[in-house]
Design a protein around this nucleic acid. Structure first.
Lengths: 215, 215, 215, 215
DNA sequence: TATGAATGAGCCTTCATTCAT
DNA sequence: AATGAATGAAGGCTCATTCAT
């Protein structure tokens, strides 16, 4: 009996939390982080400003959870997409495409994430920085292990996998940023192929081993 | 005689402008954009808050000029470094290295630039956005033309040069961001070689045409 | 029960609003509009500056409501005083006296109203101007209708009632201003009789139909 | 010789002074007193901000002189218009009409004078207040003496001439204000007749001795 | 005399955050 | 648990005014 009540509480808790996060993401995506006020988030969530503080410590905390939620969602999608795939190169391909598509779905939010207050996540002396760092390492692991497999099997050239990850990630983020931001004509996901092409084949002429096409 | 006076005035003008900019860059690099107050900038510059407004319209304008100044300086360095170099691949190599080194010198400032209020420069409906866009196009041209040359001469594989630029730029920016931000052990410039290696050769195994070493 | 709560809220709302207005009127009357700061008003009201902004949009809005409140109060007094009076000339007499006395009670505030930022109320392209205009028309109607009655009944000479109102109002305001401002020895209300005398009889010699005495 | 130089100096002095005043009046009429900045006045006058302070103590002083200049000009016009007129009633008529017309010519400036910072002139504890008071007494004398003449000759009813002046002046100012401000369809001067009519004949019915027409 | 340059002194306004109910 | 009400803390910006040249 008591458990049920607890369950109910947890349910409500989760319900509220998610409602607030959804509202926050929407408002932040629309107005940008700085201009998004707690008031607006509360209004969008249909609750009172003070209530937000029952579920989140402060504005930074709220934003942090917005980002982490997105992050986790994307990680989930990636894991899902990777299921059943063995070929490391294929894995990476799927990874990139999934990632890129996921970001495209929430363009507006990621625009903010990429352009405002990233510092919040990068200062590892803070709770937020540490939390983000952990998630990021998990993500890094996902890609790094695929790269390693490729290198071990001889499909990929041997270079420091962490560095390879860094580069790949940089390409994704970089392309994402400018595609997201500049409202390019071509969809972001259509450029995933290009990223992969360069990442695998480079710009040198010669027999391209892996042409890539994204559906 | 009259010229002299004008010169003096211009000199003072330039002196103040640069003094303020230097102060602003310092303060912003230290505290971040949001937390940097006009008061602090003024203090650092050894002048009064109101004086800043004689030289810059407002805080955004001040920051905009901070960024543009850095941009121009880097472009100057790049142009200088490119002098006398004919080989397109070599050009690109030099370009990347120069760029990366320049950013490293002002780590703290670029950390802010990459993580706070980039939106200011990306909204092309504003004066700031347009100004930045123009400079950026110039920069794009610098790299794109080198890439084109390489493609025309057959040294590089034919792909849309603008896209190639995007990717290269993304790699630089991405590596920069995370190296700058995460206080990695390795210096940013030492990774320029890696960037170039991947950019030219990709991760596929095979004969690497262009090994790169950065001094 | 629910009603009670609402009532309480409304009560508090009204309480605060009136408290702030009273404080504002006091401070403004003392220091003048320009020199009266929101800080001072808040202090006088025993609340925080920010709280004022919960009840009024900005300083202009606050001042606007100060004026409108006075206006409404005076209109109320006039309506009350007119009750049971039928004779149009008597009505006008009462009107003028009531008005003049009411202004005298709040000399200091009306001094400010007459001498500072009247423009705020006179620019009908603004919300404030329109609000004021409406109230003023109501007030005009009150007097105009009395004047019309008088003209219809033959007690008063026929002239455009609106113009008659304008003149009467001008006299009141003019006398008020200079009596209020110049700290004349004679009380403002004692001059109401004079106003009425001239308004009805003019300066021409001849049988004065209506001598006026104000108690 | 020395005198000539002094004269030249005086001439320049006067020239500058008048230039600044003209500029100030223009700017103030356009923007209102509060929004008119010393900078704008200087620009309009084609000189530097600092130069204004060579000729006027401060902004208030400048405004004061703007007003006094207008005042003196109007007094001059009135004196001129009164020349050769003997009939006191006629004098008053001319007085009112001249005054009203003069204000109409500089509507915009008088709008400001009537609605902003009149307090500056009304506080007789200040130099400005005293200066204004003196001029105003002179003006009062002009009208009062005409009124007295009329009373002495039996053309006008006997009442305290100062009070009669007050009332007449109130009517003029009041009508002026609302005509000036409200952009009434009828020209201000066309209402001078009405003012005079009421002032002389009142609203009582009966033989109107003095119908007034204004050209 | 004229001015370019500099500034002191404030004030309004905004919000994230708290707390009594 | 939820919130309406209140506020502390700051910061950008504007001008009138001064002064060295």
């Amino acid at each position: 009996m008591v458990e049920k009540i607890t369950d109910k509480k947890e349910l409500l808790q989760r319900f509220r939390t998610e409602g607030i996060l959804a509202a926050a993401i929407k408002v932040i995506a629309q107005k940008g982080l700085e201009k998004a006020t707690m008031e607006q988030v509360a209004e969008e969530a249909g609750i009172s400003k003070a209530t937000i503080y029952l579920y989140f410590k402060n504005k930074d905390d709220l934003y942090y959870h917005c980002v982490m939620t997105r992050f986790e969602k994307i990680m989930g999608l990636i894991r899902e997409a990777l299921e059943g795939i063995d070929d490391p190169v294929e894995k990476i391909k799927v990874l990139v495409i999934t990632q890129v598509k996921a970001m495209e779905v929430e363009k507006d939010f990621f625009r903010v994430f990429f352009t405002e207050r990233m510092s919040l996540f990068l200062d590892q002396s803070t709770e937020f920085g540490q939390g983000f760092f952990k998630k990021h390492e998990e993500y890094e692991g996902l890609i790094t292990s695929a790269l390693k497999e490729g290198m071990d099997s001889g499909t990929l050239r041997e270079i420091d996998p962490k560095k390879a990850f860094s580069i790949l990630f940089a390409m994704i983020r970089g392309m994402a940023m400018f595609n997201i931001i500049c409202e390019k004509r071509e969809s972001l996901s259509s450029e995933a192929g290009l990223i992969l092409d360069v990442f695998f084949n480079g710009l040198n002429p010669g027999v391209r081993i892996r042409p890539h096409k994204v559906d």
